[in-house]
Amino acid sequence: MFHRFANPARFLRLAAAVQPWAAGATVVLLATGLVLGLVASPADYQQGETVRIMYVHVPSAWMAIFCYSALAGACAVALIWKHPLAGLAARATAPIGAAFTFLALVTGSLWGKPMWGTWWVWDARLTSVLVLFFLYLGYMALDNAFDDPGRGAKASSILALVGFVNVPIIKFSVDWWNTLHQPSSVVKMGGPAIHPSMLTPLLLMGLAFTTYYVWVLLIRIRREIIATKIRALQMRQAAGQGAAAPAAAPAPGEAR
């Protein structure tokens, strides 16, 4: 029984070592990025003070796509090589990605109202990010829809891979269609078209969101590993004690 958990056991030690550093880096990067973004950076000559929403909106959108790519990658590894940790990482990533997608949509809305005069436009970029949000929800719903967690993991992995077609659509939607949403000014041929006083806080916030992702991801993977162990123990106890198995053992927490 235990050789199956040998790999997760090593991972648990690694996670315990990395997690404090990820937490510390998140706090430091976030503090620096916020001070630079909210106080030290200038207002945009076109957008005025509202440009400060960029320092949370753009990193959220980056992370929304990054998390989905990580999710699809982990699902591919889990399906092809049947790596147990990859499946747990995918399941742990989904809620974080959904949270970032939600934040990208809400902060974008709060930025769009003063700049475009409307909370929402039905253009390609906004619609495809909304679809991304639904893909996250669908992934999580399917993952939890089976009595056998292994079945849910496999079915939702296939869904995550199918949904990956949406990622290039999001990426190129601002280039392919005419839209209110401005194209990327950071990743661009010939260097970013954005002043360093704004680029620095933006990149710091992006890094902070990335380390936040690592931090919370490690917490969630540890939880998934323990939940797997609990299920194995409960099944062994049920098998050992037959029909007399106590039903008192609480189910693993369902908050995901």
């Binding site: 323990i226 162990k229 609480p250 908050a255």
Partner: peptide
């Protein structure tokens, strides 16, 4: 939420094993 869910799982494991 993530941290509390981890704590709960750890506590359940302790009572079980």
């Amino acid at each position: 939420i993530s941290r509390r869910s981890l704590r709960d799982a750890e506590r359940t494991l302790d009572t079980l094993s």
